[in-house]
Design a protein around this nucleic acid. Sequence first.
DNA 1: CAAAAAGATGTTATCAAAAACCTGTGAATA
DNA 2: TATTCACAGGTTTTTGATAACATCTTTTTG
Lengths: 143, 143
Amino acid sequence: MLSKTCEYAIRAMLFVAQKSKSGTKVGVKQIAKAIDSPEPFIAKILQDLGKKGLVLSAKGPTGGFYLDKSGLEKSLADVVNAIDGDRLFTDCGLGLKSCSAKMPCPVHHEFVKIRKDIKGMLQKAKLGDYNTALELGTKFLKR
Amino acid sequence: MLSKTCEYAIRAMLFVAQKSKSGTKVGVKQIAKAIDSPEPFIAKILQDLGKKGLVLSAKGPTGGFYLDKSGLEKSLADVVNAIDGDRLFTDCGLGLKSCSAKMPCPVHHEFVKIRKDIKGMLQKAKLGDYNTALELGTKFLKR
DNA sequence: CAAAAAGATGTTATCAAAAACCTGTGAATA
DNA sequence: TATTCACAGGTTTTTGATAACATCTTTTTG
């Protein structure tokens, strides 16, 4: 469904979001540990997300990644779009190169509906929405 | 969403279903051409599906793959399950190894609903359901 | 029997995703 | 201002999925 990269990205962003609520910046090492991901890999991903304006970063001691108010309002759909593009929402479910309402694969119409649901779900979910649950330990980012 | 293998499998099965309606058996070569897939690859997939009882085959001249009445009643979910297992319906949307109602990732509950929809859709879609549309050329298996 | 077609098995090639590494550069603080 | 911390950026390696090919066996029809 989502690429591995994208999965890591979302988990990392949710962790950063959680920490940003209290104004803390977090380093790559800490993030990697929190979401159980390879450190150099998550560094790359965050760098990429930074370039695309989805996460802020500060160099030097006490530096790290963080989100501001508007960053916390970004949705999971924004993250997915930054990493995977709109592949998930446009690619044919049966792998056809040109599959559209005009030239549909057998399951095209059914897939359109499903994808719409997924998109809606991802758009509704904001990065800041999960802080409480994460702190309470009722939702998890690793294992 | 589905593996490439699974996509080919579904397309191949839909083609076989279409031909089986009129009692025709189809060879690997013909199938590969019809769904625009590598011939040795689709051969392997069909061999596999045959072993799992989803498609019938006959050796020798005039042989090939075909479906009987009960085969045409099988659903896309059956094909997906034979190839990809229940990966699609059980794996965590964010890549966590153990993600369940008890230890959910942040989007677990949302994903459960989506997956249920997908499953329902695949179960409702029978292999024989698309014959007319395929013959009329309003739905397609390649390009 | 000969030809045709699937069954079975194994090897190799290609490609993109994932992962790891290494050096550069800017910022903070003592 | 020097040191150190941490992100930035580029390069390389590894891995796994996909794809392609080859060979041989078995079965069935004509």
